[in-house]
Protein backbone atom coordinates (compact mmCIF):
# COMPACT_ATOMS: atom_id res chain seq x y z
CA UNK A 1 0.00 0.00 0.00
CA UNK A 2 2.76 2.39 0.99
CA UNK A 3 4.73 1.50 -2.10
CA UNK A 4 1.63 2.05 -4.25
CA UNK A 5 1.23 5.60 -2.90
CA UNK A 6 4.87 6.34 -3.70
CA UNK A 7 4.59 5.87 -7.47
CA UNK A 8 4.26 8.92 -9.69
CA UNK A 9 1.04 7.51 -11.15
CA UNK A 10 -0.77 7.20 -7.82
CA UNK A 11 0.46 10.63 -6.67
CA UNK A 12 -1.07 12.17 -9.79
CA UNK A 13 -4.35 10.27 -9.45
CA UNK A 14 -4.46 11.24 -5.77
CA UNK A 15 -3.94 14.94 -6.62
CA UNK A 16 -6.75 14.73 -9.18
CA UNK A 17 -9.07 12.99 -6.70
CA UNK A 18 -8.45 15.61 -4.00
CA UNK A 19 -9.15 18.41 -6.49
CA UNK A 20 -12.45 16.85 -7.64
CA UNK A 21 -13.46 16.18 -4.04
CA UNK A 22 -12.70 19.82 -3.19
CA UNK A 23 -14.89 20.93 -6.08
CA UNK A 24 -17.87 18.87 -4.94
CA UNK A 25 -17.50 20.30 -1.42
CA UNK A 26 -17.14 23.94 -2.54
CA UNK A 27 -19.97 24.01 -5.11
CA UNK A 28 -19.57 27.72 -5.63
CA UNK A 29 -18.80 28.88 -9.22
CA UNK A 30 -16.61 31.77 -8.04
CA UNK A 31 -14.35 29.62 -5.88
CA UNK A 32 -14.28 26.83 -8.47
CA UNK A 33 -13.18 29.49 -10.97
CA UNK A 34 -10.25 30.44 -8.73
CA UNK A 35 -9.23 26.79 -8.54
CA UNK A 36 -9.31 26.58 -12.35
CA UNK A 37 -6.81 29.46 -12.51
CA UNK A 38 -4.81 27.73 -9.81
CA UNK A 39 -4.64 24.63 -12.04
CA UNK A 40 -3.32 26.70 -14.96
CA UNK A 41 -0.72 28.40 -12.75
CA UNK A 42 0.37 24.98 -11.49
CA UNK A 43 0.92 23.70 -15.02
CA UNK A 44 3.28 26.64 -15.67
CA UNK A 45 5.11 26.53 -12.33
CA UNK A 46 5.73 22.78 -12.48
CA UNK A 47 7.64 23.40 -15.72
CA UNK A 48 9.38 26.38 -14.14
CA UNK A 49 10.35 24.24 -11.15
CA UNK A 50 12.06 21.74 -13.45
CA UNK A 51 13.95 24.64 -15.01
CA UNK A 52 14.77 26.66 -11.87
CA UNK A 53 15.01 24.08 -9.12
CA UNK A 54 16.53 21.24 -11.09
CA UNK A 55 18.42 22.77 -14.05
CA UNK A 56 19.30 25.96 -12.14
CA UNK A 57 18.15 28.37 -14.88
CA UNK A 58 15.69 31.25 -14.51
CA UNK A 59 13.18 32.19 -17.19
CA UNK A 60 11.40 35.55 -17.09
CA UNK A 61 9.49 34.66 -20.23
CA UNK A 62 6.94 32.14 -18.97
CA UNK A 63 4.10 34.69 -19.29
CA UNK A 64 5.12 35.17 -22.93
CA UNK A 65 4.98 31.42 -23.60
CA UNK A 66 1.65 31.30 -21.78
CA UNK A 67 0.47 34.17 -24.00
CA UNK A 68 1.83 32.61 -27.21
CA UNK A 69 -0.12 29.42 -26.46
CA UNK A 70 -3.28 31.41 -25.75
CA UNK A 71 -3.05 33.83 -28.69
CA UNK A 72 -2.10 31.14 -31.23
CA UNK A 73 -5.06 28.93 -30.42
CA UNK A 74 -7.31 32.00 -30.13
CA UNK A 75 -6.32 33.43 -33.51
CA UNK A 76 -6.37 30.06 -35.28
CA UNK A 77 -9.87 29.18 -34.03
CA UNK A 78 -11.52 32.60 -34.47
CA UNK A 79 -9.77 34.35 -37.40
CA UNK A 80 -8.91 31.25 -39.42
CA UNK A 81 -11.80 29.07 -38.24
CA UNK A 82 -9.61 26.03 -37.58
CA UNK A 83 -11.03 23.30 -35.32
CA UNK A 84 -9.62 23.28 -31.76
CA UNK A 85 -8.11 19.82 -32.27
CA UNK A 86 -5.81 21.26 -34.99
CA UNK A 87 -5.19 24.56 -33.20
CA UNK A 88 -3.98 22.78 -30.05
CA UNK A 89 -0.85 21.07 -31.46
CA UNK A 90 -0.05 24.12 -33.60
CA UNK A 91 -0.11 26.47 -30.60
CA UNK A 92 2.20 24.19 -28.61
CA UNK A 93 4.48 23.71 -31.62
CA UNK A 94 4.84 27.44 -32.28
CA UNK A 95 5.69 28.22 -28.64
CA UNK A 96 8.12 25.36 -28.33
CA UNK A 97 9.91 26.39 -31.55
CA UNK A 98 10.31 29.97 -30.34
CA UNK A 99 11.69 28.72 -27.00
CA UNK A 100 14.08 26.46 -28.92
CA UNK A 101 15.39 29.35 -31.03
CA UNK A 102 15.89 31.58 -27.97
CA UNK A 103 17.44 28.73 -25.99
CA UNK A 104 20.06 27.58 -28.52
CA UNK A 105 22.44 30.54 -28.24
CA UNK A 106 21.75 31.45 -24.59
CA UNK A 107 22.00 28.02 -22.98
CA UNK A 108 25.44 27.41 -24.43
CA UNK A 109 26.64 30.12 -22.07
CA UNK A 110 26.96 29.64 -18.36
CA UNK A 111 25.34 32.01 -15.89
CA UNK A 112 22.03 33.77 -16.01
CA UNK A 113 21.91 34.68 -19.68
CA UNK A 114 18.62 32.85 -20.07
CA UNK A 115 16.94 35.26 -17.64
CA UNK A 116 18.09 38.21 -19.74
CA UNK A 117 17.14 36.66 -23.08
CA UNK A 118 13.67 35.63 -21.87
CA UNK A 119 13.15 39.07 -20.34
CA UNK A 120 13.72 40.51 -23.82
CA UNK A 121 11.53 37.89 -25.46
CA UNK A 122 8.70 38.66 -23.03
CA UNK A 123 8.79 42.34 -24.00
CA UNK A 124 8.90 41.57 -27.73
CA UNK A 125 5.93 39.22 -27.46
CA UNK A 126 4.04 41.82 -25.43
CA UNK A 127 4.69 44.47 -28.09
CA UNK A 128 3.55 42.11 -30.85
CA UNK A 129 0.27 41.40 -28.99
CA UNK A 130 -0.29 45.17 -28.68
CA UNK A 131 0.69 46.24 -32.19
CA UNK A 132 -0.40 43.44 -34.52
CA UNK A 133 -3.89 44.94 -34.63
CA UNK A 134 -5.31 42.90 -37.51
CA UNK A 135 -4.75 39.60 -35.70
CA UNK A 136 -4.68 40.41 -31.98
CA UNK A 137 -7.02 43.39 -31.76
CA UNK A 138 -4.24 45.39 -30.09
CA UNK A 139 -4.57 46.61 -26.49
CA UNK A 140 -8.33 46.03 -26.40
CA UNK A 141 -7.89 42.37 -27.32
CA UNK A 142 -10.33 40.02 -29.03
CA UNK A 143 -13.02 37.59 -27.95
CA UNK A 144 -15.47 34.92 -29.11
CA UNK A 145 -12.94 32.11 -28.76
CA UNK A 146 -14.91 28.85 -29.03
CA UNK A 147 -15.37 26.44 -26.13
CA UNK A 148 -13.73 23.03 -26.07
CA UNK A 149 -15.85 20.03 -26.98
CA UNK A 150 -14.57 16.68 -25.79
CA UNK A 151 -16.34 13.37 -26.59
CA UNK A 152 -19.40 15.38 -27.64
CA UNK A 153 -19.61 17.23 -24.30
CA UNK A 154 -19.17 20.99 -24.53
CA UNK A 155 -17.15 22.32 -21.57
CA UNK A 156 -19.60 25.17 -21.04
CA UNK A 157 -19.56 25.51 -17.26
CA UNK A 158 -16.92 25.87 -14.56
CA UNK A 159 -17.45 22.39 -13.12
CA UNK A 160 -16.82 20.59 -16.42
CA UNK A 161 -13.83 22.81 -17.16
CA UNK A 162 -12.47 22.24 -13.67
CA UNK A 163 -12.34 18.48 -14.21
CA UNK A 164 -10.69 18.96 -17.61
CA UNK A 165 -8.02 21.36 -16.31
CA UNK A 166 -7.21 19.27 -13.25
CA UNK A 167 -6.93 16.09 -15.33
CA UNK A 168 -4.24 17.90 -17.29
CA UNK A 169 -2.60 19.17 -14.07
CA UNK A 170 -2.43 15.54 -12.89
CA UNK A 171 -0.93 14.45 -16.21
CA UNK A 172 1.73 17.21 -16.10
CA UNK A 173 2.53 16.23 -12.50
CA UNK A 174 2.91 12.61 -13.63
CA UNK A 175 5.35 13.66 -16.40
CA UNK A 176 7.34 15.97 -14.09
CA UNK A 177 7.69 13.42 -11.29
CA UNK A 178 8.87 10.79 -13.78
CA UNK A 179 11.49 13.15 -15.20
CA UNK A 180 12.73 14.08 -11.71
CA UNK A 181 13.16 10.46 -10.61
CA UNK A 182 14.87 9.31 -13.80
CA UNK A 183 18.45 9.45 -15.06
CA UNK A 184 17.48 12.77 -16.64
CA UNK A 185 16.40 14.13 -13.25
CA UNK A 186 19.70 13.08 -11.71
CA UNK A 187 21.58 14.67 -14.61
CA UNK A 188 19.63 17.91 -14.06
CA UNK A 189 20.48 17.95 -10.37
CA UNK A 190 24.13 17.37 -11.23
CA UNK A 191 24.12 20.33 -13.64
CA UNK A 192 22.61 22.54 -10.97
CA UNK A 193 25.36 21.57 -8.55
CA UNK A 194 28.43 21.47 -10.73
CA UNK A 195 28.23 21.80 -14.47
CA UNK A 196 31.83 20.68 -15.16
CA UNK A 197 31.43 17.57 -13.02
CA UNK A 198 28.20 16.72 -14.83
CA UNK A 199 29.99 16.86 -18.16
CA UNK A 200 32.87 14.68 -16.94
CA UNK A 201 30.17 12.07 -16.23
CA UNK A 202 28.97 12.31 -19.82
CA UNK A 203 26.07 14.74 -19.55
CA UNK A 204 25.65 17.01 -22.57
CA UNK A 205 24.79 19.94 -20.34
CA UNK A 206 23.78 22.57 -22.93
CA UNK A 207 21.49 20.13 -24.69
CA UNK A 208 19.79 19.00 -21.49
CA UNK A 209 19.26 22.57 -20.31
CA UNK A 210 17.76 23.41 -23.69
CA UNK A 211 15.45 20.38 -23.53
CA UNK A 212 14.13 21.35 -20.10
CA UNK A 213 13.67 24.97 -21.13
CA UNK A 214 11.67 23.88 -24.18
CA UNK A 215 9.57 21.52 -22.03
CA UNK A 216 8.82 24.31 -19.54
CA UNK A 217 7.75 26.55 -22.44
CA UNK A 218 5.55 23.70 -23.71
CA UNK A 219 3.85 23.41 -20.30
CA UNK A 220 3.26 27.19 -20.24
CA UNK A 221 1.70 27.15 -23.71
CA UNK A 222 -0.52 24.25 -22.61
CA UNK A 223 -1.78 26.47 -19.79
CA UNK A 224 -2.26 29.28 -22.33
CA UNK A 225 -4.39 27.01 -24.49
CA UNK A 226 -6.57 26.17 -21.46
CA UNK A 227 -6.81 29.86 -20.54
CA UNK A 228 -7.93 30.96 -24.02
CA UNK A 229 -10.77 28.44 -24.23
CA UNK A 230 -11.91 29.14 -20.68
CA UNK A 231 -11.93 32.96 -20.59
CA UNK A 232 -12.72 33.14 -24.36
CA UNK A 233 -11.30 36.67 -24.45
CA UNK A 234 -7.64 37.69 -24.69
CA UNK A 235 -5.89 41.01 -24.13
CA UNK A 236 -2.15 41.70 -23.72
CA UNK A 237 -2.31 42.84 -20.07
CA UNK A 238 -2.56 39.26 -18.77
CA UNK A 239 0.75 38.25 -20.35
CA UNK A 240 3.06 40.95 -19.03
CA UNK A 241 6.42 40.75 -17.26
CA UNK A 242 4.49 41.17 -13.99
CA UNK A 243 2.97 37.72 -14.42
CA UNK A 244 6.35 36.18 -15.33
CA UNK A 245 7.83 37.58 -12.13
CA UNK A 246 4.87 36.33 -10.12
CA UNK A 247 5.44 32.81 -11.49
CA UNK A 248 9.13 32.89 -10.56
CA UNK A 249 8.13 34.18 -7.10
CA UNK A 250 5.70 31.29 -6.65
CA UNK A 251 8.48 28.77 -7.24
CA UNK A 252 10.95 30.64 -5.01
CA UNK A 253 8.49 31.15 -2.14
CA UNK A 254 7.42 27.52 -2.21
CA UNK A 255 10.93 26.12 -2.40
CA UNK A 256 13.18 25.35 -5.33
CA UNK A 257 14.71 22.12 -4.09
CA UNK A 258 11.59 20.16 -4.82
CA UNK A 259 8.64 20.21 -7.24
CA UNK A 260 6.23 20.04 -4.27
CA UNK A 261 7.76 23.34 -3.20
CA UNK A 262 6.67 24.97 -6.47
CA UNK A 263 3.21 23.48 -5.97
CA UNK A 264 3.00 24.82 -2.39
CA UNK A 265 4.14 28.28 -3.48
CA UNK A 266 1.64 28.38 -6.35
CA UNK A 267 -1.26 27.36 -4.13
CA UNK A 268 -0.34 29.95 -1.47
CA UNK A 269 0.29 32.86 -3.85
CA UNK A 270 -2.76 32.14 -6.02
CA UNK A 271 -5.20 31.84 -3.14
CA UNK A 272 -3.71 34.46 -0.80
CA UNK A 273 -4.76 37.58 -2.79
CA UNK A 274 -8.31 36.23 -3.04
CA UNK A 275 -8.66 35.95 0.71
CA UNK A 276 -6.83 39.19 1.46
CA UNK A 277 -9.65 41.12 -0.28
CA UNK A 278 -11.26 41.08 3.11
CA UNK A 279 -8.76 43.80 4.12
CA UNK A 280 -9.94 46.05 1.24
CA UNK A 281 -7.32 48.71 0.42
CA UNK A 282 -4.70 47.18 2.67
CA UNK A 283 -4.58 43.87 0.81
CA UNK A 284 -1.47 44.66 -1.26
CA UNK A 285 0.36 45.88 1.86
CA UNK A 286 -0.41 42.70 3.81
CA UNK A 287 0.46 40.58 0.77
CA UNK A 288 3.85 42.31 0.63
CA UNK A 289 4.48 41.82 4.33
CA UNK A 290 3.63 38.11 4.09
CA UNK A 291 5.97 37.64 1.10
CA UNK A 292 8.81 39.47 2.84
CA UNK A 293 8.37 37.51 6.05
CA UNK A 294 8.50 34.21 4.18
CA UNK A 295 11.70 35.15 2.37
CA UNK A 296 13.36 36.46 5.55
CA UNK A 297 12.26 33.71 7.93
CA UNK A 298 12.36 30.79 5.52
CA UNK A 299 14.61 31.60 2.54
CA UNK A 300 14.66 27.97 1.38
CA UNK A 301 10.91 28.12 0.76
CA UNK A 302 7.72 27.09 2.48
CA UNK A 303 7.81 23.43 1.52
CA UNK A 304 9.13 21.09 4.20
CA UNK A 305 8.39 23.31 7.20
CA UNK A 306 7.98 20.93 10.10
CA UNK A 307 5.14 21.96 12.35
CA UNK A 308 6.33 20.94 15.81
CA UNK A 309 3.11 19.14 16.76
CA UNK A 310 4.92 16.90 19.22
CA UNK A 311 6.38 19.82 21.11
CA UNK A 312 2.98 21.51 21.28
CA UNK A 313 1.45 18.35 22.66
CA UNK A 314 4.24 17.86 25.21
CA UNK A 315 3.95 21.43 26.43
CA UNK A 316 0.22 21.27 27.01
Amino acid sequence: MKKLLKSSFSKSIFTFAIAVLLMTIIRNPYHVGILIFLGMNLIITMGLSLLMGYAGQISLGQAAFFGLGAYTTGILTTKLGLPIITAFPLSILLTVSIAFLVGIPTLRLRGHYLAMATLGLGEIVHIVFNELLSLTGGPSGFGNIPLIKIFGIELDNDYKYFVFVWAIVAFILFLSLNIINSRMGRALKSIHREENTASTLGVNTSRLKLTIFVISAGFASMAGFLYAHYVTFLSPGTFSLRFSILLVTMVAVGGMENIWGAITGTVVLTLLPEYLRFFKDFDILIYGIILMSIMILRPEGLYGIKIPLKRLRNNS
Partner: peptide, 12 residues
Protein backbone atom coordinates in the same frame (compact mmCIF):
# COMPACT_ATOMS: atom_id res chain seq x y z
CA UNK B 1 24.95 7.80 -17.15
CA UNK B 2 27.21 6.84 -20.04
CA UNK B 3 25.81 3.30 -20.03
CA UNK B 4 22.17 4.35 -20.34
CA UNK B 5 20.33 5.99 -23.19
CA UNK B 6 16.67 6.61 -22.27
CA UNK B 7 15.64 10.02 -23.58
CA UNK B 8 13.58 12.59 -21.77
CA UNK B 9 10.32 11.36 -23.34
CA UNK B 10 10.62 7.73 -22.40
CA UNK B 11 11.57 8.90 -18.90
CA UNK B 12 8.60 11.32 -18.69
Amino acid sequence: YTHSSSGIFSCA
